[in-house]
């Protein structure tokens, strides 16, 4: 297990240059074009003196290299700084406000996609080569190519507007109160035994999660299918079959367990896709998460917030892939580091 610990440590250390590289990229690219947060918020009516004064307050009048060093030094201290526009709130607070919404959406979308992936994948693996198999293969390709805003719009239009089954924008009804503990509405409402809140939050979550979930499910369909096929060819399955164990039990209890490992490794990569897809989903459904937040702040060139958000995303991706790797290392003893 020592080797595993070394591995984890290396991985953790490797995230530092990754964050650093992305941060630098964003830092400099953002300053190429004219325009900065000061001019974006004071708008058109302010006097140049007023603008200069505000720039000075934010340190934007310093030379670029100086700003860069200051910023890196701040990040090193674990401080993401303060927003440069209205409110001048700490970036970490802003992220803490917005991230739970994205987390909740991604978890639910992930659940939806794995659920669809498992059902379709297992089904396809039991009938390789049949029409159903081909159909599901086509599904997996088409699903990934479904443009999220289009799918979202169609669902909004049919289920939301025409049939009035589900709400189509936002996270909860305005009159429903959910006390914030974690910021995940489903969890919070359960913790406070708030059934009305739970159902309400769930209803708002359904369409966005289904949209994002369906788009990402295709990958799981094929992955589950191919790894199931592989496992089903193995000797221990034959042995089980020979012993007369029911096929359903073999599939669900034995084969699926083993087929799940590749699915798990895929999750690290998928998480990145999930976050990217979440931006489009959030925009389509007015979901108050990180994606809409980032887009909004980019428009105002809120330097610190955009940089902080990118750092946060990078750390998040690194952390998730690390966790996935560790879990993988534990459950699959064949892997040695």
């Amino acid at each position: 297990m020592v080797s595993l610990r070394v591995y984890i440590l290396t991985r953790v250390l490797l995230t530092i240059p990754m964050v650093f590289i992305l941060l630098s990229l964003v830092f400099f690219v953002m300053r190429i074009l004219p325009g900065d947060p000061v001019i974006a918020i004071v708008g058109m009516k302010a006097s140049p003196e007023h603008i200069e004064r505000l720039r000075h307050e934010l340190g934007l009048d310093k030379p670029l290299w100086r700003q860069y060093i200051d910023y890196i030094a701040m990040i090193m201290r674990g401080d993401l700084g303060r927003s440069m526009i209205w409110g001048k709130r700490p970036v970490s607070t802003e992220i803490w406000d917005r991230f739970p919404a994205t987390l909740e959406l991604t978890i639910c979308a992930f659940t939806v996609s794995v659920l669809i992936g498992l059902v379709t994948g297992v089904f396809a693996s039991t009938k390789p080569g049949t029409k159903a198999d081909v159909g599901l293969r086509l599904f997996s390709i088409v699903a990934y190519s479904l443009f999220i805003p289009l799918l979202g719009m169609l669902l909004q239009f049919t289920l939301g507007v025409k049939l009035k089954l589900l709400p189509v924008a936002g996270r909860k009804s305005p009159l429903v109160q959910i006390d914030r503990i974690t910021g995940l509405y489903l969890l919070d409402s359960l913790l406070t035994l708030n059934l009305v809140g739970f159902v309400d939050a769930l209803r708002y979550l359904l369409l966005p999660s289904i949209t994002l979930g369906v788009v990402l499910s295709g990958v799981y369909t094929r992955l589950v299918r191919s790894s199931m096929l592989e496992v089903l060819r193995e000797d221990f399955i034959r042995a089980l079959r020979a012993r007369g164990i029911p096929e359903g039990q073999i599939l669900l209890r034995h084969a699926l367990k083993n087929a799940f490992i590749p699915v798990l490794t895929m999750m690290g990569l998928q998480f990145s896709l999930l976050l990217a897809g979440a931006i489009l989903t959030e925009t389509t459904f007015s979901w108050p998460g990180m994606g809409t937040f980032l887009l909004e702040r980019i428009e105002y060139r809120d330097y610190t917030t955009v940089q902080g958000t990118i750092v946060f995303y990078a750390l998040l991706v690194a952390m998730v892939s690390l966790i996935v790797d560790i879990i993988y290392a534990y459950i699959d003893p064949r892997i040695r580091y």
Binding site: V122, F123, R203, Q249
Partner: peptide, 28 residues
């Protein structure tokens, strides 16, 4: 059992949607 697996998954989804629909945001 295959059918059971598929049906079970569907039932769960339908149940969630169903409950959600029935409870349809009770307004204060």
């Amino acid at each position: 059992s295959k059918v059971v697996a598929v049906v079970a998954a569907l039932v769960i989804i339908v149940a969630i949607v169903g409950i959600a629909y029935v409870y349809q945001a009770r307004k204060a």
